[in-house]
Nucleic acid binder design. Structure first.
Lengths: 277, 277
DNA sequence: ATTGACCTTATAGTCGCTATAACCTTTATA
DNA sequence: TATAAAGGTTATAGCGACTATAAGGTCAAT
């Protein structure tokens, strides 16, 4: 039993024969003995120790090349520093995953919201709670340009999120603001684009609050229709004798993987906070 | 600016040109326009939307093939189920990483302990606090066999840990027990091997407690020397008139990636709990 | 006209295996 | 002892998502 064939060695250690042959080829784990006639590999069970160590180092994310180096030239200090680095790395990974989790939850909610949204063109009064946004100032008023300019600004926002270390997923829940002043005069001027964020995960100094209020909203399924739909909203506000109580918001509810003519498939909720007398 | 070369598109979206060519080849993102004469690819900035979606789906762990399918044949229900699955997966990953973190910390401590351990052959009295172990019963008394048998048992233990869903890392901090009864008669009989575990991470019914006590310990750097060193320990206990107060433990302090003759490089602390009158 | 930046395709390499083909050796059974 | 089944050998290709390189064609500015 002290001369194991490759199959036995593989079975004992729960690796495949090919893996053992591969390790042999790399010089990572040479069989104890090779029959010169037949080329048969024979392992000693003691070699499991080395295999254990290989598997452990692999689990730390080391490449086989690095493992080989480390095993051939054992340096405990180095191992310790790899372990310490690994420990930090795990913490970072956990943080990143928590971030990602939030983002996925957010995307699910976004799709659910899309599915349950009223159809395009519907006008409704809705209460919307307090929201946090991270906003990004641009140099141009993008209402003067089209979807292309908007895409370009999104590219910049994306880069900005990256630079600030914010998860790019927020990206799918974007929007922009037109000030109360401008919207009251029906002037579509905006150089501020934003993404909705979670307070817990974004440094407080980067975020702004949009207050809770009753909003008159209209749903819209195409980028090009925004302004005409916004006019319908303003007309409705006048008709009902509501008072505009704050900034106009164009919120992207869902960014669909649905590309007509290569264009972003978007679903919006245009909203104006109102006071009802 | 509405006709971007591959280089501009790549820069805007922070991907490499090769990646864009690769996506083109896969049919994942075809440029808006290709010059038939020169083969030059020209993208529209609007296509960034599709690229965003590709990147997002990639971040969810989808393969490019699946992404292509999904984009060509958009099904929101499917996306939602992928997202929900992803959410669960993230939770699992976080749990796994926490586990791994503990394991790495444990390995660091183990190396530190090795570095600060007294040299081979040293006998010292130490207070050792309460410890938790997961133990594994074997059919044979492995003291009757050599390192080979021990390795074989370790293979079984490893498999057992795997079956029980315990992290394999505990493996590097193993040991075995000889009952008080046997050790008092200097009979080295043991069929119980164990690994030290963290209480928090292992189901309570699987673990056993080794009580806190003062232990007379001897450090040992070779598997083959265990029994002779253990005898020295017992001789010392007699000489000092201590009373053996519990089971003998052979603890592996470090499993070094240092292979003389392919053998496991181990460092042990052999210990007997004693009562000093 | 020339330079240099940028584009093209085609091919090979990365990593840690897995799969397959074509063939050889060992072991157990008829 | 013949034979079949199990298990071993090497060599090669493939995976996935790229990256790197070579050899050559195109564009824009001087």
């Amino acid at each position: 039993m002290n001369k194991l064939t490759i199959g036995q060695m593989a079975q004992l250690n729960h690796v495949s024969e090919q893996t053992l042959r591969y390790y042999d080829k790399l010089g990572l784990l040479k069989p104890n003995e090779v029959d010169k006639e037949t080329g048969y590999r024979y392992y000693s069970i003691k070699q499991s120790a080395r295999l254990d160590m290989i598997q452990y180092m692999k689990s730390l994310g080391m490449s086989l090349k690095d493992i080989k180096e480390q095993l051939n030239n054992c340096d405990i200090g180095l191992i310790k520093s790899i372990l310490e680095q690994k420990s930090k790395q795990i913490d970072e990974q956990i943080e990143a995953l928590k971030f990602q989790k939030r983002a996925v939850e957010r995307a699910i909610i976004s799709y659910e919201r899309y599915e349950t949204s009223p159809p395009d063109g519907t006008i409704v009064l809705e209460f919307i709670g307090k929201r946090k946004v991270y906003s990004y100032e641009t140099e141009i008023n993008f209402y003067e340009y089209g979807l292309e300019a908007y895409e370009e600004i999104l590219r910049n926002l994306k880069q900005d999120l990256k630079n600030k270390g914010l998860p790019q997923i927020y990206f799918c829940n974007a929007g922009n603001i037109v000030s109360q002043e401008n919207i009251m005069e029906r002037k579509f001027i905006s150089s501020e684009i934003f993404v909705f964020v979670d307070r817990e995960y974004v440094p407080a100094q980067l975020i702004k609050t949009i207050p809770a209020n009753i909003y008159l909203c209209i749903y819209c399924n195409k980028f090009d229709k925004e302004i005409s739909y916004a006019y319908r909203l303003l007309d409705e506000i006048e008709k009902c004798n509501y008072t505009i109580a704050g900034d106009y918001i164009c919120e992207v509810i869902a960014d669909l993987p649905d590309y007509d003519d290569n264009e972003r498939g978007m679903f919006f909720r245009l909203q104006v906070p109102v006071k009802i007398d």
